[in-house]
């Protein structure tokens, strides 16, 4: 099954996507491939606004009936906002992973280099390879 990989985003090996916003913040969520592998999402825990995250820090959990997956911060920074809608409608992660199903928004820290993120084509290769 081909998964949807928008070309305007960056990705991680652990299946998060990162969108750069006009105001300098970034929005983070899990990919279509990830939501499909998890199945019906029943619960999402997001980090609180103001929390300072290190790159690679586990800071959110996406839970389905068969798995509970940690979500890692793709870049370091301070949480600006979390998607409160998911508390009552966790299924948005399945239905619209790149839109309404976003997880949190982050103000990148000074040293937040985005170089480690994958380009869409690289992520596509990763997914195709069974990663």
């Amino acid at each position: 099954m081909a998964s949807n990989i928008p070309t305007d985003l960056r990705y991680t090996r652990s299946h998060e996507w990162v969108r750069k916003n006009a105001d300098g913040t970034v929005t983070i969520g899990v990919t279509d491939h990830a939501q499909h592998a998890l199945g019906d999402v029943v619960f999402v825990e997001t980090p609180q606004a103001g929390r300072v995250l290190a790159a690679g820090e586990a800071c959110a959990v996406v839970e389905s009936v068969k798995a509970a997956s940690d979500v890692y911060a793709p870049v370091a920074g301070t949480v600006v906002a979390a998607n409160g809608v998911l508390a009552d409608a966790p299924e948005r992660v399945n239905s619209d992973p790149y839109g309404d199903g976003w997880l949190w928004c982050l103000a990148p820290g000074e040293d937040a280099a985005a170089t480690a993120l994958l380009a869409p084509a690289e992520y596509e290769t990763l997914v195709a390879g069974g990663g």
Binding site: V65, K66, A67, A68
Partner: peptide, 14 residues
């Protein structure tokens, strides 16, 4: 049984 994603047979080391 519900909320099984917290349990050892799914979350293993976590």
């Amino acid at each position: 049984l519900t909320l099984q994603a917290r349990e050892q047979h799914i979350r293993r080391g976590r």
